[in-house]
Design a protein around this nucleic acid. Structure first.
Lengths: 205, 205
DNA sequence: TAGATTGTTAATCGATTAACAATC
DNA sequence: TAGATTGTTAATCGATTAACAATC
């Protein structure tokens, strides 16, 4: 759904008012049936003979994804990665706003990055309530992830985006997405060697 | 496979010499059949009655993934995100080493981050050859991604890890993995609202 | 030998695709 | 009306699971 949204925003931005399932499918490397099925799962959004109205569909998908409003986000961990994520402008466009940043390191607490002053983790719970924060971005070292997770859950957060290369143990009420950059690079390396091996086979065999 | 590797490294680190498919499955939330099938696809790595020898399996998976050696990596784009990726220590452990960093901004070229001096993109092709670089991490703004991609492909890179929120148009010989942080956050938000909606339904209905 | 556990085959399940009546 | 395109049903395909002979 997120990928459809991204593509529809580009189509809409280029001035096209509607798009057919077959055109959208081609752009994303899918089948038209697949596209129609995906949308139909959430309701009847299309117009037979016409296609899908881009702006209307964008609204619908936003509403489905819950990004038709701005989500306040807490950043946990303000080391290198955390600072970069603060500087990353991609979040704001898509309905997310990092409204508070936390750490435990005395040399980071109190410093200001991108206009946000780093607070101590002890202030997390009260800030979550005060700013109605539901999502946390966890950007601490692997060794600190388990403890930070406990504090995040205790503070009442509903979803965690985890950059630490460890498996988090969460209650089922809390959602998570894991972003493990090393694993992504491994997938890439595997894909590269798989292609090399395929080439070697077709040359030799 | 990467997830198996990560888990096996933890098991091995805790001193266990072997592990059964059922134990490994439980730890990862899979079925034992699934685990055995995944391994069997690449060969016969297990011992009936015993299980899998952790260290041996780790070696095999590394060899399958191609991470039984160190991959030199080029970083393209040294803004906030690029600098954070340079500082990120997770890559080195898993067989990747960022050996060169590139940008086009005059205020970045020549500066040094984490011991690497930023070079101009014009030097990419020769550096790729000299350092036998096969992978590139693309951390430039969306608007600059298409042009940078062309230069990367022209330089002879085999795989691109793309942090820009755009669909790259690549020849089939070049692999890619896309890491779109806004999309990941959207998935998280969707998961949170889906749970809220499920709760609302069960309370009301 | 008895117990444990594999690799693999057959059965099940779900997801993708193709086809088409309904609709603009 | 004719052409285009949807939502949905039926057919196909692939992936997951269960079962079990083979093996340590």
């Amino acid at each position: 759904m997120s990928l459809y949204l991204r593509e529809l925003q580009m189509v809409s931005g280029s001035g096209k008012p509607t798009i057919s399932s077959s055109t959208l499918a081609r752009r994303l490397g899918l089948t038209a049936s697949q596209v129609r099925k995906d949308f139909a799962y959430f309701g009847q959004f299309g117009y037979p003979g016409i296609g899908y109205r881009c702006d209307e569909l964008i609204q619908k998908i936003r509403s489905i994804l819950g990004t038709d409003r701005v989500w306040p986000v807490a950043l946990i961990g303000c080391g290198n990665l955390g600072q970069a994520l603060l500087g990353y402008r991609g979040f704001g466009n898509q309905g997310f706003s990092v409204v508070a940043a936390f750490d435990k390191q005395p040399n980071l607490v109190g410093r200001t990055f991108e206009g946000l002053t780093v607070r101590h983790m002890d202030e997390l719970a009260e800030t979550v309530v005060a700013s109605k924060i539901e999502l946390a971005v966890l950007a601490v070292p692997a060794a600190a992830a388990a403890e930070a997770t406990q504090e995040i859950v205790a503070a009442g957060i509903s979803g965690i985006m985890n950059f630490a290369p460890v498996t988090l143990n969460l209650p089922p009420s809390v959602s998570q997405v894991g972003v493990d950059l090393a694993i992504e690079l491994e997938q890439l390396a595997f894909s590269v060697v798989a292609k090399q091996r395929a080439r070697d086979r077709s040359e030799k065999g």
